[in-house]
Simulated assay, not measured.
Amino acid sequence: MNSSYHVGVDGLSLPLVAMTTIVFLACAVYALRQPDRPRIQAALFLFLQGVSLGVFVAPTSSCSSCSSTSRSWACTS
Rank of each mutant, 00 (worst) to 15 (best):
L44G: 14
V51S: 09
V57S: 04
I22V: 14
Y5W: 14
A58N: 08
S3K: 11
P59L: 15
F45I: 01
L25N: 08
T20C: 07
R71A: 13
A26P: 03
S70W: 01
D36Q: 04
S65D: 14
P35M: 07
A31G: 05
G8Q: 12
T76P: 06
L12D: 03
H6Y: 06
A58P: 01
T76L: 10
G50T: 02
V17G: 00
L46G: 00
R33Y: 06
L12C: 02
S13Q: 15
Q49W: 14
H6L: 10
R39F: 14
F45K: 01
A42C: 04
W73H: 11
V57C: 10
S70G: 05
D36M: 02
Y5Q: 08
S77Y: 02
A26Q: 13
I22K: 10
L44H: 02
C75Q: 00
L53H: 05
V29W: 05
T21D: 12
F24R: 11
L46E: 00
M19I: 12
Y30I: 05
I40V: 08
S65P: 02
F24I: 14
S68K: 15
V9Q: 11
I40R: 13
P59T: 07
A43L: 08
G8V: 14
P38E: 04
C66E: 06
V55L: 12
C27L: 13
S72D: 04
A58K: 10
D10C: 12
I22T: 13
G50E: 09
G50A: 03
M1E: 07
G8S: 14
Q34F: 10
A31C: 09
M1L: 12
L25Q: 09
L16C: 03
Y30Q: 04
V23R: 12
L44N: 05
S65A: 15
V17T: 03
T69P: 01
F24T: 13
S77C: 11
P38K: 05
A26V: 15
Q41T: 12
V23M: 15
G50Q: 02
P38I: 02
S64Y: 05
V9E: 01
A18E: 12
F24E: 09
S13T: 15
N2T: 11
V51R: 06
A42E: 04
G54H: 13
S3R: 09
F47K: 04
S13D: 15
D10Q: 04
A31Y: 08
S4P: 00
S70P: 01
V57D: 01
L32I: 12
P15Q: 05
L32P: 03
V55I: 13
S68M: 12
L44I: 03
T20V: 02
F47W: 08
